[in-house]
């Protein structure tokens, strides 16, 4: 394939990765920003979102679109409630101590993974997309006949993939509105900046934490519901999103929500675009080192303040 179309297809793929990553990482970023804890089980909430999506779509099963919409509403809700319960039962009891949270959430990870394996099984299970038309993309060239529109072989995407990007933007915009325009957002931001002060002003910090933890998990689940018609639900699918979200949150600058979005776009797009120039594994190595070097020379992240 020529360079131009190749570049376009890689960028499109990068954009889809970025969209999902932005949602998943935003969940982790909110938790990290407000509660200052490392939630190792975040990827498992993502996985649960996908598994519940399969389950809901499977149960409803009348029309793929109906099942999908139901999953998009139900999966984040269920996962969010479960996460909030985990917060109450475990994290609150250990006072959000950073080290203990790591061990506790690793424990949670084992529990969720094994329970899924025992109920859902080890197979990767697909969810049918609500719509999925292959869209060929035109390209141009200056040939013998001057400017021409052509339809290169293989250059295309699907309507569902474009929808994923759109849906991620809608959800993130909604989240941004909540965080900046509503009282809930105000309380969350106040707790993030100084939880002692927030407590003094009568903010029920414990309850806010449970909500935040639930919201973070729900965002991961939402990302998973969007991705599951492209990929499949599988009990080990949480590993990569966890690592990538982590990286995105730190690169973006701790607790900076716009930074998280920018970093997600940076990482998703670079993953796609670097693959144009190098052999696949080498591209992964380079993309990984690029991200590491960004942090080495800008430890506070892209939008973080120096000396946090």
């Amino acid at each position: 394939m020529d360079f131009g179309p190749h570049f376009l297809i890689a960028s499109l793929e990068g954009a889809i990765t970025a969209a999902i990553l932005a949602l998943t990482a935003m969940g982790l970023s909110i938790v990290f920003g407000v509660m200052r804890v490392v939630n190792v089980a975040h990827g498992e909430f993502y996985m649960l979102g996908a598994v519940i999506a399969w389950w809901v779509a499977h149960l409803i099963g009348i029309h793929p679109a109906l099942g999908f919409v139901a999953a998009l509403l139900l999966a984040p809700l269920l996962v969010g409630v479960l996460a909030a319960a985990a917060d109450k039962l475990i994290l609150q009891k250990i006072g959000y101590d950073p080290d203990r949270t790591i061990v506790g959430t690793i424990g949670l990870l084992y529990i969720i993974q094994q329970s899924t394996l025992m109920t859902f099984g080890p197979d990767a299970r697909p969810v049918q997309p609500p719509f999925n038309t292959r869209l060929s993309i035109p390209w141009f060239e200056f040939g013998d006949n001057g400017f021409e529109i052509i339809w290169p072989w293989g250059l295309g995407t699907t309507s569902y993939k474009l929808f994923v990007i759109f849906a991620a933007i809608v959800i993130l915009t909604g989240l941004w509105a909540v965080m900046t325009r509503t009282k809930i957002g105000l309380i969350m931001r106040a707790t993030q900046q100084d939880n002692e002060m927030a407590r003094a002003f009568g903010v029920p910090v414990e309850r806010v934490y449970a909500w935040v933890f639930g919201l973070g998990a729900a965002l991961a689940a939402a990302g998973a519901v969007l991705v599951v018609p492209i990929q499949q639900a599988h009990y080990l699918m949480g590993g990569d999103p966890l690592l990538l979200s982590f990286i995105v949150v730190i690169i973006g600058g701790l607790g900076s929500l716009p930074g998280t979005v920018i970093a997600a776009i940076f990482i998703g797009m670079s993953d796609g675009i670097i693959s144009v120039f190098f052999s696949p594994t080498l591209a992964k190595i380079i993309a990984t080192l690029v991200v590491a070097m960004v942090l080495v020379f800008r430890p506070q992240g892209l939008l973080g303040k120096a000396n946090p």
């Binding site: 982590f246 701790l254 594994t281 992964k284 990984t288």
Partner: peptide, 26 residues
Amino acid sequence: LALRTSGVAFMIVTLMFAQAGYLTIL
């Protein structure tokens, strides 16, 4: 390289180097 950072950034930088090392073996 990694000691230019601290805290969570140190975690991530070491993680990324290790990931790059793993991929290099492959």
